[in-house]
């Protein structure tokens, strides 16, 4: 394996006195999908926000070989990182097209036009709705727009926070298919999910977080059969078949 694109070492994030992420180590290899799964409140969202620079953190963050733990959020975007946050954070009063254009704020006009075409090919739905206000989109469309907006920046690393949140199962399937296609086109992906089964099926490598710590990690294909995963989600012992 090449040197990882993103390397997190001993990362701590605190809200006031309370640490929400304690000593997390994670690596994202180039061209891979890495997933972080875990229950609500395990610290997954906090972790992503810290990596992106939305939240201050302590510890090492290396991206494409450079230490970036002190650089501001905007510079991390310039460097090729992009986050699709849990709440999407779209510009809801603006047209779909404008949301996309702003996604390419740091790119040249030519690059923007080119990438927008690519995004429209990937998400034909967005092309249909290009003049519609982002706030009027359905949940699935909003997620697609959020991903499209992130792609406009031409990121090397795309971080997705709960892309399946609040979406109907059929749409979730679509979204995950696109995530897979993105990896195949060379974008590295860090995926945080509660929908563990879907995430594990898609990912190359997985981490399980609990109470701010990574408690398990391994190949996604192996973890999907792991009994402990079931416990993380449903608790107690029972023999529901996951595979």
């Amino acid at each position: 394996m090449n040197a990882p694109l993103l390397e997190i070492s001993d990362l701590h994030v605190a809200y006031g006195k309370v640490e929400a992420v304690t000593g997390v180590d994670i690596a994202v290899a180039e061209g891979a999908i890495i997933t972080v799964i875990g229950a609500n409140g395990a610290g997954k969202t906090t972790l992503l926000n810290a990596i992106m620079g939305v939240l201050p953190s302590r510890g090492g963050i290396r991206f494409a070989g450079e230490a970036i733990d002190q650089t501001p959020l905007e510079s991390r975007v310039t460097g090729g990182m992009c986050l699709v946050p849990e709440r999407r954070e779209l510009f809801s009063g603006m047209a779909v097209e404008d949301n996309l254009l702003l996604g390419g704020f740091l790119r040249t006009r030519v690059e923007r036009a080119q990438t927008q075409e690519e995004v429209f090919t990937r998400f034909p739905r967005l092309k249909e709705r290009r003049r519609q206000l982002a706030g009027t989109l359905s949940g699935g469309e909003r997620q697609m727009l959020a991903m499209g907006r992130a792609l406009m920046a031409r990121p090397k690393l795309l971080m997705l926070d709960e892309p399946s949140l609040g979406l109907a199962p059929r749409i979730v399937a679509d979204v995950f298919e696109i995530v897979g296609a993105l990896r195949d086109s060379g974008v590295s992906i860090l995926l945080v999910e509660q929908n563990a089964r879907a995430a594990l099926r898609l990912a190359d490598h997985a981490y399980v977080m609990e109470l701010g710590c990574v408690v398990m990690q391994g190949k996604a294909s192996e973890m999907i059969a792991d009994k402990r995963i079931i416990e993380t989600y449903l608790g107690g012992t029972h023999n529901a078949d996951l595979a």
Binding site: S164, P169, V172, A173, F176, Q194, N195, A196, R197, A198, R201, L202, Y233, L234, A240, L242
Partner: peptide, 12 residues
């Protein structure tokens, strides 16, 4: 089974 489905996620 419906609860397990809802919590672990649908067939992706």
């Amino acid at each position: 089974p419906a609860v397990i489905e809802a919590y672990l996620g649908g067939e992706a």
